[in-house]
Amino acid sequence: MKIESNRFFTSPSPHIRAEESTRNIMTDVLVALLFPLIMSVYFFGWRTLLIALVSVFSCMFFEWGYDRVTKQKTTVRDLTSTVTGLLIALCLPVSVPVWIPVFGAFFAIVVVKKLYGGLGKNFLNPALTARAFMYSWPALVSVWIKPNLGERAISVFGRVSRAALDPEIIASLTPLGKMKLGYLPSFAGGNTGVISSLRDVAVGNVAGAMGEVSAIVIVAAAIYLLVRRVITIHIPAAYVGTVAILSLLFPLGGNPGYLWAIYSVCSGGLLFGAVFLATDYATSPVTPRGRIYYGIGCGILTFLIRYFGVYEDGVTFAILIMNCVACFMDKLCRPVRFGASKKGGARK
């Protein structure tokens, strides 16, 4: 064989690379998001899929469209906008009109992500900012349908039935709403909208946003993400741990602390937020200690908003506020330089 030297590639080291690409990581996140998505279809019916498809399609369309308009090579194939789309959908109630996620997607992709320089450069989580934006229509995004009754309340294509006004179907309160009044969701009292046993809260048989209701399924998704090394445990553990400890110490309405803590952790968007939203790469710290402080910060803010704010669930704003300080956390938590710790022992 004739060897032609000019046919050798030359490049700086290293000459081998891990298989993992941005696209692979996003595929893993999508697989993890399938867990709550499937659970949501089970609880809330096929309309879940319609909302998810509209949201995902809108995000990918805006990503592609923006790149097209600004004449850049499109990054739609890296699947990050697909993930954003699914996250937006799973934060919404099943009864939401289909045009809401389209607005959310536009805001998330074009305003929050692309205008700040695109992938990895945005400092706010696009899906969460979109969610905060969509709170502009509280009557549409804060209506909670009881699980297993979804299809009766609202058809796949959004035809609201007469039943939609039926208090049997529309939950006036989510478990967190009740907790805000100082009642455990499992006991009657106050505004008796929902009565949820601990089992219902864990499995997800409660009123709430589509992807957020089932604690067990989200924990399973978290394990998948940890095993696949997409996320590290620091942020979710610090976040959930902080909320659990604070709720344990300060239960409302004279309830037992441990029960209050379990309900606080399993209700609302906490687990979903801690696993899928607070761990967003671009908007969270990269240093191990920074991640822990960031998680604790999210936890304290969530606790404060839940106790003293007007919103039932503080997750969205807690994480968005922490997004703003994430890069400072990294600055403050620089790892100790190798050899500079006590173990160093280098002679002067």
Binding site: F8, F9, S11, H15, R17, S21, T22, I25, T75, D78, T80, G118, L119, G120, T232, Y281, A282, P285, V286, T287, P288, D330, R334, P335, V336, R337, F338
Partner: peptide, 28 residues
């Protein structure tokens, strides 16, 4: 095998921080 994959954009995932044996912050 000798060809390196194309560069894309940093997504700030922090994997470089996890693996750096000298405790540096390659991403920054």
């Amino acid at each position: 095998e000798g060809e390196l994959p194309c560069e894309t954009t940093c997504i700030h995932c922090g994997k470089c921080v996890q693996v750096c044996p000298m405790n540096l912050l390659p991403v920054y």
